[in-house]
């Protein structure tokens, strides 16, 4: 699965993208974010407060109970501030 990070999530974690092999038990966004936290102390720090970690699956905004699978493009980012 391809993971993309934007804005301060990208700078805190230190990479813009990474490709991960998903454990079988990770089937939704909430489980994915929880699993990503275990990858490094930087991940744990960046993802600590899930209220400011928004998620898009295949370029659509989704809630934490949205399903994810190995072929998905998943992006994690803070609340948007354009306009």
């Amino acid at each position: 699965m391809k993971i993309l990070y934007f804005a301060w999530l990208r700078t805190k974690i230190g990479v813009a993208t990474e490709t991960v092999d998903l454990p079988a038990e990770v089937r939704d966004v909430g489980a994915l974010v929880a699993w990503l936290k275990t990858r490094s102390p930087k991940h744990a720090d960046a993802l600590a407060n899930s209220t400011v970690v928004k998620v898009a699956v295949n370029q659509e905004h989704v809630p934490y109970d949205h399903p994810v699978g190995p072929g998905d493009e998943v992006a994690l980012f803070p609340p948007v501030t354009g306009g």
């Binding site: 934007f6 804005a7 898009a56 905004h61 992006a75 980012f77 803070p78 948007v80 501030t81 354009g82 306009g83």
Partner: peptide, 9 residues
């Protein structure tokens, strides 16, 4: 746009 378009300042 301000709440949906993925831009960060």
């Amino acid at each position: 746009l301000k709440t949906k378009a993925p831009f960060w300042k």
